[in-house]
Design a protein around this nucleic acid. Sequence first.
DNA 1: CCCTAAAGTTTCATAGAGTGAAACTTGGTT
DNA 2: AACCAAGTTTCACTCTATGAAACTTTAGGG
Lengths: 248, 248
Amino acid sequence: MAEDGKSTVRAVERALDILLCFTKKKEWAMTELADSVGLHKSTVHRMLATLEERGFIVRDAASDRYKLGLRIWELSANMSGADDPAVIGLPEMERLRDMLGETVSLYLRDGNERIRIQAVQSIQAIRRVAPIGVRLPLYVGASSKVLIAFEEAAKREELLQDASWPPSFDRQQFQEQMAEWQRLGYAMSVEEREQGAAAVAAPVFSRTGKLVAALSVSGPANRLTPEIMRSQAPAVIEAARRLGVMLK
Amino acid sequence: MAEDGKSTVRAVERALDILLCFTKKKEWAMTELADSVGLHKSTVHRMLATLEERGFIVRDAASDRYKLGLRIWELSANMSGADDPAVIGLPEMERLRDMLGETVSLYLRDGNERIRIQAVQSIQAIRRVAPIGVRLPLYVGASSKVLIAFEEAAKREELLQDASWPPSFDRQQFQEQMAEWQRLGYAMSVEEREQGAAAVAAPVFSRTGKLVAALSVSGPANRLTPEIMRSQAPAVIEAARRLGVMLK
DNA sequence: CCCTAAAGTTTCATAGAGTGAAACTTGGTT
DNA sequence: AACCAAGTTTCACTCTATGAAACTTTAGGG
């Protein structure tokens, strides 16, 4: 039972791992799941029965495969509290989008990854939903820079020392540039994570001065040149500041 | 291990029950949770450690209490598939809202309850987030009528026979009125669930003709008189039809 | 239409995982 | 300081979760 630090419940861990599979793919057959998590068929079967009984997953009537159930919806609806940046920030993000005409995203750091918790698209009237909730690496992109550079010193060190970064990540260079981002109050990226994409991001601080999120404006690199982004930076910083004071 | 039908995993059930507590309240102390689910402190402690390790819950740094973690977000984002009415239906719902000037909601049946999975408010520009995801009883309200009356015959019977309805629910009367709703293609309610509120609802069918949701228009009863609602019904039915063809 | 393969379901003996009582620690209040 | 409540850790025991194997259902091919 003893593991790294706290003692946990194996059966529950396994069940949660099964649930987490649904972030990779929306529909799973039982055997697929068993292979994916490396458990025996009959174990997965029992787990799925349990998860289904509580409404966390459902069986698609047609395909006989498993999907996430409505209880997940219910939970996520209830997690949006008065302090949820995704909800509170929406109007401010829309304002910024209308002002700059580009996609505006809000990122939270979770461990050594970041999650896009809210986004308003540039062109489409209705926001694309797919990319909300995605996990992205914390070592590329303007938002990542912000989420590290403006973190508390201790946390910042811890993140930089993280062994799980890929070899391509240049700690040295990153650390050197960090001072500049801190001075300017924003960071940029050009075709780091995605071909042909560029972004400017600014930190969102809570009233207590703690970093809570990164607000980014992103778009095609040929439109968002470094020069253009520099000119947009003040608007992003201002929006991020307003966003910050709205929180908690 | 043997229970009603399928065999389940007790530890997992307990963990899920703990998670489900967060639909009632957003923040919990450990002892509160232990009392609520009727488990020993140390058991809950272990469960929470497990849930936390996987990111399903987090400890609020300030209050030292537990809240739902970002993994829930991630899951809910991934559950919105190409067939999620909540996402696809939004534009159509907004159209209807703009046309009638009242709140438009979309309900799904889950067991013998219904869930409001999407809503666009009448007045506010930004949609109220709180009530999305709430579970409501299936025996009152226009949407409930629709979610039962337009279900397949077998399912309909099963639902009507459900023993968990309160004594106040008049099966006889319900069944008599059902034919009328089916004939008209919509149902109304006046001050059934909530004082001073009224609603018209129409069924949303998938392309295969299966009932998938109920679309409702609701507002204050003094504005939404039966007469007015009757005149709005065709628009609701049409919007529900359009919504249906968009699905899957 | 039958045969075979794959996927899903149930059964069951066993080990080891989960459990809760109790002891211990931490932090805040009178 | 002493107290109390909340949270955390330990540990022996038992019952629960487990996976192998048998069995059932479904799907596809000859």
